[in-house]
Amino acid sequence: MSTLEIKNLHVSVETDDGAKEILRGVDLTIKSGEVHAIMGPNGSGKSTLAYSIAGHPKYTVTDGEVLLDGENILELTVDERARAGLFLAMQYPVEVPGVSVANFLRTAKTAIDGEAPKLRTWVKDVNSALERVTLDPTFAQRSVNEGFSGGEKKRHEIAQLELLNPKFAVLDETDSGLDIDALRVVSEGVNRYTSQGDRGLLLITHYTRILQYIQPDYVHVFVAGKLAESGGRELAEQLESEGYDKYVKAAAAL
């Protein structure tokens, strides 16, 4: 049983006019076994939250902490956070030319587990993980994300989620840009991951569409750098019919 606690998180980015605050005090606790959905309008800071948890160097934490089982992971490097059990499926997965998917996955698995995976089963594991997200096994020989379509990149993220099997996963708009078949494939992958029962999920999304496939325990509305409201599944339905208008106006009035 693990806990990921985000406490009063303030984050800013460097701009030409100095530091600009994007996250303005985010509080959120996720326990293993829980599925949290974060929904919010464009530019509200959802990706900033995801990247800050993962430790992207572009973002500066100015206040607050992120605790994984009580340990402040903000003091860890990007790779240490991953080895501690965090995973970020990125909104725009990065192309790494010349590094094959096979080599990348084996290196990552070795790093996460602290020992090289058994050669005999590993190739099979990789192939079936790719197959489950309907990626051809030939993808293993291609460079990481290079020339992948938008949907293929997202499915590759989910294959990694399954192979690395972290304690907590943050999925940043993994559903964006997917057609209905790919959305189903991705959702099934996510559900296989959560159905283990002891994994935590933070699902960042823009649309309620994916929530027809992945059932969240909690839904949070994210506006102007913080959580504006939290609730259950019914909150998603309300957002579906009413949009973010009410929250955006309220935030602007502050």
Binding site: P57, D79, A82, V96, G98, V99, A108, A111, L164
Partner: peptide, 25 residues
Amino acid sequence: HLFYLQSRGIEETEARRLVVHGFFN
């Protein structure tokens, strides 16, 4: 590149190595 690789648990020096090899490969 480095962030993506590190975010999968790969240490920085190893990530750099992968990137250089990839570059030449």
